[in-house]
Design a protein around this nucleic acid. Structure first.
Lengths: 351, 351
DNA sequence: CTGTTAGCGCATTCAG
DNA sequence: CTGAATGCGCTAACAG
C-alpha cells in the first residue's frame, strides 16, 4: 500500500495525496476529503522510513536509561511513552545497566536511526562521551534525573532533598544517622544525595557516619546492615539513596531483629509507587517520575519544533516532597540513653 | 556523513563501500580493509532509514505491553531489550494501559514504522483486531504471556500453575481459599488463573469462594479485603492473580489486624524481583519474565531470518515454579476450629 | 490548486 | 572484482 495506490484510486497525483494528508490547507476541501476517504478505505499508512529519509525527521525519540528493573525508571519511561505517543512520537529505548560504554553505544545506534532527539540519564554528565557526541552532531537531548550546570536537565534537587530529610530526622531526635548508597561512581544522583547527607549532618552539628556503599542489584545490603546494626553505637536512622535499597534495608533490619521504625528509622529516595503498599509504608523523598519523563519529552519536542537543541538554561527543576511513611519515626529513647552520641553527651553536660 | 563521503575518502565507488561494509566476501580483502579503516576514521554509520527503505528491513522489533508500572512487564521488556540489542535489533515499545483500542493503534503505528516483527501481550488473543491486522499483512509476531492455541505464544501454563498452588495450599490444611484477581475482562491470564483456581478447588473437593475482582492500579483492594476478613467465615488463604495485588492484600490484611501468614496466607503470581525483598517475603508463582522476553525475541528473529512468520506450533511453554515465601504457611488451627468449613464439618461428622 | 520531477541515502542489479 | 545506474516511498520545489 503506497501513496501511488491511493493516488490512482482517488484519481489524483501522488503530490496531491501527500498534500491532502499532510498540508491540509494547500488543497481543495473536496479533493482533500475524497483523498482522505480513499486513503482510509484502503487503510493506507505512509511509510515512515521513506518519510524520514525525505524530511530528515523520524518522529522518534531515543531513550537511554540505566535499567528498567528499578521501578523509578520504568515509571519515568511510562511517562515518556505516554507523552511522546500523545505528541505523535515513538520511542526507542536502550538500557545501559549502569555501564558508561553502553551509553555511548546506545547513542551511536540512536544517531544511525535518525531519532529527532534523545532523553538520557547518564552516569556522569560532566564527562560523557555520549553527550559529547550529541553536541558534536547538534542533536537535541535532555538529561533526566541528572543535574548539571552545562546541560539541559529535568529532575529534582537531590542534594537539597537529602539535606531537608536530615533536618527532618534530626527534628525527630535522630543523631546517629547513616547513609546507605548505591555505588557513587555509577551515579551522579548518588553523589549528590551523599553530598546532601554530609551537608545536612554538618548543619545539624552531627557527626557523619561512614558511607555504606552497596553494589546495585545485590543482596549484599543484608550483610552490611546486619553488621551495622550489631554495632554498639548503632544508627537510629538509615538514609538510603534510593527506594530499592531502602526496601532491602527494611528486610535486613527485620532479619537482624530490629523493628522499624521503633528501633530504627529507614528512608528511601525516588517515591516508587510500590513503596506506598509496603508495611511499614516506606518513608521516602518522592520524585514526580512520570512528570520527569513528561517534561523531558515536552522540552525535547519544543526544541525540535523550534529547530534548536535545548540548552542548559532550559533545565527544569521539579519539586520533590517527603512522603511520610511508617518506616520513619522519632528516635527511640532507649537507644539514645543507652548510647548517647557525642553531641548528646555534650548537650547534657551543659545542663 | 554519507556513504558518498566514505567512497570519496577511500577512492572507491559507493557500491564498493556498501559491499565492503555488508557483503564482506564480494570485495578484495585489501580494499575491504581500507574502506573499513576509512569508514571507522570518519565515524561513518549507515543511515538506518535509507537502508530500511531499500531493504525493507528495519532491524526494529515493536513491543506492545499493557503497562510498565507492573514490574512483571518491565522485567520482560528488560529481557527483550537485552536480547534484541545483542541480536542487532532495536525496540520500539508502546503501552496500552489495558485498553484494547490502544493495542490496535500501537500495531498500526508499528506497521507504519516498518518494524520487522512485533512482540505483544494482548487482552484477548481470540478476537484481537491487532492480531488480525498482523496476520493480514503477514508480519511476524509473538504473543508474550498470552496463551492461545492458534497463535505463537511464549509463557507459562497459568491454569496449571494455580491448580498446583491450590493443591499446595490444601496440603497445608487450607480449605477456605479465596481468589483476588484483576479484572477478568482485561486479561486472559487472569481468566486462566481463575480457571486454575476453580479446577483446583474442585479437585480438592472444596467449595469455591466468590471471586474478588479488583480494578487495576486501584487501592480498592483494601476495602474489599477488610470487608472480607471481617466476615465470620473468613478465608485462611488469599490467592492473588498477580504480585501487585498480593502486595496490596498483604497491607490490607495488616491494616485489618490480621497477621500474615499466621492468621491468613497470601500468595501472588509473577515472581517480580521485589517480592523477595518484602517482609514477609512474598510466596508466589514465579514466571521467568526476562526469559519470556528473551525467547520471544529469539523466536521472532529466527522467523524473520527464515522469512516466515512464527506459527502456533512454535509456541514455547516455559516452566514456572512456586517460590515459597513467608506469606504462606499452614492454615491456622484456631480459625479452623472456630469456623469449620462445611467440608470440615462433614468430614468430622463422618468420624 | 494540482501535476511533474528531483532527490533523501542506501543496496543491488547490470555492465565492464 | 569494481563502477554506474536504478529505485525503495515520500515530500517539496517548481511548473503549469
Amino acid at each position: 500500500m503506497r501513496i501511488q495506490d491511493v493516488a490512482k484510486a482517488a484519481g489524483v497525483s501522488i503530490a496531491t495525496v501527500s498534500r491532502a494528508l499532510n498540508a491540509l490547507d494547500k488543497v481543495t476541501p473536496e479533493t482533500r476529503e475524497r483523498v482522505r476517504q480513499v486513503a482510509a478505505e484502503l487503510g493506507y499508512t505512509p511509510n515512515a522510513s521513506a518519510r524520514t529519509l525525505r524530511t530528515q525527521r523520524s518522529c522518534v525519540i531515543g531513550v537511554v536509561l540505566p535499567t528498567l528493573l528499578n521501578p523509578v525508571f520504568a515509571e519515568c519511561l511510562e511517562g515518556i511513552a505516554a507523552t511522546s505517543a500523545a505528541a505523535g512520537y515513538s520511542i526507542q529505548p536502550f538500557t545501559t545497566e549502569y555501564q558508561v560504554e553502553r551509553e555511548d553505544q546506545a547513542v551511536k545506534r540512536l544517531l544511525a536511526a535518525n531519532v529527532d532527539g534523545i532523553i538520557l540519564v547518564v552516569s556522569n554528565p560532566g564527562r560523557s562521551s555520549a553527550l559529547q557526541r550529541l553536541i558534536a552532531v547538534r542533536l537535541p537531548y535532555v538529561l533526566a534525573y541528572n543535574q548539571h550546570a552545562r546541560h539541559p536537565c529535568v529532575g529534582v534537587n537531590n542534594e537539597k532533598a537529602v539535606r531537608e530529610l536530615i533536618a527532618h530526622l534530626t527534628a525527630l531526635g535522630h543523631e546517629r544517622i547513616a547513609m546507605v548508597s548505591g555505588m557513587l561512581k555509577a551515579s551522579d544522583r548518588a553523589r549528590q544525595r551523599y553530598r546532601g547527607y554530609r551537608n545536612g549532618m554538618k548543619r545539624a552539628g552531627l557527626a557523619e557516619l561512614p558511607l555504606i556503599e552497596v553494589p546495585f542489584v545485590e543482596t549484599a545490603v543484608q550483610e552490611v546492615v546486619t553488621q551495622l546494626v550489631d554495632a554498639r553505637l548503632r544508627p537510629t536512622a538509615l538514609v538510603c539513596s534510593n527506594d530499592l535499597i531502602a526496601i532491602r534495608c527494611l528486610r535486613a533490619a527485620h532479619l537482624a531483629g530490629l523493628s522499624v521504625p521503633h528501633q530504627i528509622s529507614i528512608t528511601g529516595f525516588d517515591g516508587i509507587a510500590l513503596g506506598e503498599d509496603l508495611t511499614p509504608m516506606l518513608g521516602t523523598i518522592a520524585q514526580p517520575n512520570a512528570d520527569i519523563g513528561r517534561h523531558s519529552v515536552e522540552l525535547l519536542v519544543q526544541a525540535i519544533a523550534a529547530g534548536k537543541p535545548p540548552a542548559a538554561p532550559a533545565s527544569i527543576k521539579l519539586a520533590h516532597h517527603f512522603r511520610a511513611g511508617e518506616s520513619c519515626a522519632p528516635a527511640p529513647r532507649t537507644s539514645l540513653s543507652t548510647h548517647p552520641s557525642p553531641l548528646t553527651r555534650r548537650l547534657r553536660s551543659l545542663r
